[in-house]
Design a protein around this nucleic acid. Structure first.
Lengths: 198, 198, 198, 198
DNA sequence: TATGAATGAGCCTTCATTCAT
DNA sequence: CATGAATGAAGGCTCATTCAT
């Protein structure tokens, strides 16, 4: 097992962990299995991340970073809140469909955090919330902060629910069709909201 | 440790397992911990359920049975598809909010099944789908089977997404408020659907 | 599971135990497996034999009794010590070859006794020794008691050694051929012995 | 518990296992007991041997290696087949008498293999057969390969049978006396064989 | 009497982690 | 710095046996 600098190792571990977690769940992702998948000594994992918990954290950060990078594109054009929300949800589900392993790992880690470190789970969830709130709030039209927050939560809700189903049966096409339906709902909801507040 | 009839023990184990799973996740729910929580010998668990997997299965059946019993009430009155869907979702989320441990355990087991026995996970998901489809299809108005299925999936999606958020931060009130919003979306979606097919 | 009188059960258990021990060894013959093979409740075994050790004892007695019954025929005719020894060995190995399961079980129990209850192992071994000594001593010619004992031990030695090989590879024909060779050795040995003592 | 190099640990485990197996049989030799006897953590056993089966294998290899090393001396001098066979048997039984624990362990493992992994048992038996065949065939006189094989099997048979008795009652002197008798038989057998083939 | 039900003790194995170099 | 070696704690499960009827 060749000596390899820690920085390189970190990446190898994170990538390997995503695959293993997607396959075996967060609890089934043992340090040994991850190390094997990364072609690295088991001790290296602790050298790089100290604990398994830290590794999972790093994995989650990596995953949500990737997703955020992707979803930033949704805000690019001026299109109104409803349209932006639709674009955000569609883009997110497109990403989920194209990166099943990552999606699976994200959810597995989120569930793992809930029982291991609930406060951390809240923080994780918050990362998505604030990230998307920024996207949705970028052109704010007449919507209040509270209304933006409400729409954001609804986007997250739909994304979570659609992903849950995707992860269970792996039916990509049906997921995208349901996503379209969800978009219909989402935009009428936003319009209702805006009309009400006007 | 007093001898106790197996039927009684089964219930004790299932109840204990729900609490432990809610606290520690499905993987963290060790046979030892469950037995301790149930005030029972570890060997009794294997006498009643043979394997830990079987116990988790029984727990899931118990949980979904409880939820189904509850949601049957949603179909009681003649009220149209949109209204029924709203009632079903509201009732489900009300139940989730009132039974946080059960909800947490249900999700934990569902996620656990995904990595342990994916085919089982599909079956579990299917149980909800068909159960709710029956509720929604009971008075079918002009909706086709396919449309009913589509609405059902949307209800499940929303319930999953809302529960996910509830489980993370435990904010019951906000969950019920978001549920109300989700109901708005849901009923406009159903109406759109019916109008389109007319 | 029908209630069945203890006497009948005993036989069922002994027969079942022989098969299970032959298959899984004395240690692998668990009370559950034996009960299953006997189509009997596990508790019946303890009702009939109190302990697993007692059952194995009963099995051994049954097995050695069968073998003894068979070997008694070897003494039937007047034929001199050498010839009788040959007949005894041949007959024993013929029996072993025709009853592999029983032979296997006999050895498994003998080995099991050595580590569980060494004194019992000695007694078991003694049963064969005295039984065969009677056969060989029945027409004593000019041989002394000590000489008879010596020959007996040699017969047992050869039977044990030949059986060991038989149990390992299950080659019945080769065993009988080697038995013929062993008989040659045995009779020349007896003759040497008698000549020496004359 | 001090960290100790794996090679050292392997030896400690093997030595400890021999003692425990001699005392409690192969099935009674639990990983706990062996670790305790070796003054080592239980987990070290799995670090060194992975499974209990592997440990037993290593023990058997160690034991048969020791015996083989010892028996090589039997071939040292030019002495004819009969004499060599006698020397081999005597030497083997001398070794058995001087190393009761090892002998007991060897038989226990051999019997254990018969029910756990029959094919392995055949291979184990074969190790002795071929090893001794080499010793006996080294100066082959006029004997054919088949004759050599036949003699080898007879030596093994006698060694097994004599050991069986030794292990039961532990009577070393009687074993060596019986070994002398067995040698008489063996050499007359070889002579008969050679005369016949001439 | 004979049996279904129940259990304390112990099994083999694997885990995340630490040690020593 | 990075890793091969080693381990305490805990995992799921099975055993012979006893209990209650």
């Amino acid at each position: 097992m060749a000596h390899i600098p820690a920085d390189t190792r970190r990446e190898q571990f994170i990538d390997a962990a995503v695959r293993v977690i997607a396959r075996d769940g967060a609890a089934g992702a043992t340090t040994r299995r991850i190390a094997e998948e990364a072609n690295a000594p088991q001790a290296s994992m602790h050298y790089c991340f100290q604990t398994k918990e830290n590794l999972l954290l790093a994995v989650f950060e990596h995953l949500s970073e990737s997703l955020r990078t992707d979803s930033e594109g949704a805000a690019a054009e001026e299109a109104g809140l409803a349209r932006t929300a639709e674009r955000l949800l569609t883009r997110t589900m497109r990403y989920a469909v194209d990166h099943l392993d990552q999606t699976r790992a994200t959810f597995a880690i989120a569930m793992w955090a809930q029982s291991t470190n609930p406060e951390l789970a809240v923080r994780m969830y918050g990362m998505f919330l604030t990230g998307w709130q920024d996207v949705l709030g970028s052109d704010r039209e007449t919507a209040s902060n509270e209304e933006i927050a409400s729409v954001t939560r609804m986007v997250v809700t739909l994304a979570d629910g659609l992903s849950m189903q995707l992860l269970t049966d792996g039916d990509r096409d049906r997921t995208m069709r349901d996503t379209a339906n969800a978009c219909v709902m989402l935009s009428t909801f936003v319009e209702t909201l805006l009309r009400r507040s006007a």
